[in-house]
């Protein structure tokens, strides 16, 4: 006598369960092993999608370095980050725009240090430490941006990154990959590094 396996059910009908699992398995296989014609169609569709440079596949992620700046949380793809160093000595340079804080010396190289708050024209309120320098490098351009604190490195699901809200009208909006659900600002390292506006080239001479 079989009765539905309830909470208090004494007996389990194993044969029934096996049968149902086998059914389910068959159904799954039928769905995923298409007939030869179908297979071709699917493959062609996939090829087209790939050729079109399909949008990030679901589940794709990037590795980011997270940091805080003026009480906000930022992230930047770690492939643009060459290193993070504590800011100890800083030589200010007269005659540079406000977002250039100065230069530092790192293993024989001179690296300029930028304040993103100033570059993004964010309101200058509050006093922050800004004593971690994140060195960004894309092979051609190199500079360091300052952070108050480094949170760490983690993987970020691209699905979690939303395009910036249209209400975000500050300069920053141009340099973002997006904003995460936790309102973490994800910077577009490629854009930041390639931006001509970030280069100081005072051709007016003296």
């Amino acid at each position: 006598m079989t009765r539905p396996a309830g909470r208090g059910g004494a007996a389990i009908d194993w044969s029934e369960i096996r049968r149902r699992m086998a059914d389910a398995e068959r159904a799954l296989e039928e769905q995923f092993v298409p007939a030869p014609g179908q297979r071709r169609a699917i493959l062609e569709a996939r090829a087209r999608a790939l050729a079109a440079g399909a949008p990030a596949e679901p589940g794709a992620s990037i590795e980011v370095l997270e940091f805080t700046l003026a009480n906000e949380r930022y992230a930047i793809e770690s492939s643009w980050v060459s290193e993070v160093v504590p800011l100890r000595e800083l030589t200010p340079l007269p005659g540079t725009p406000a977002f250039v804080l100065g230069i530092i010396h790192l293993r024989g190289e001179v690296i300029s240090v930028l304040d993103l708050k100033k570059f993004f024209e964010l309101p200058d309120r509050g006093l922050s430490d800004l004593d971690k320098a994140i060195v960004l490098d894309d092979g051609a351009m190199q500079f360091a941006i300052l952070a108050d604190a480094i949170v760490g490195v983690r993987r970020l699901l691209l699905d979690d990154v939303q395009p910036p809200l249209p209400t975000l009208t500050d300069v920053r909006a141009d340099y973002l990959l997006g904003i995460t659900r936790q309102s973490e600002v994800v910077l577009d390292g490629r854009k930041l590094l390639a931006d001509p506006a970030i280069v100081v080239a005072d051709e007016t001479g003296g």
Partner: peptide
């Protein structure tokens, strides 16, 4: 460095 191409 490359970011400071020319500073007066």
């Amino acid at each position: 460095g490359p970011q400071l191409k020319r500073v007066r």
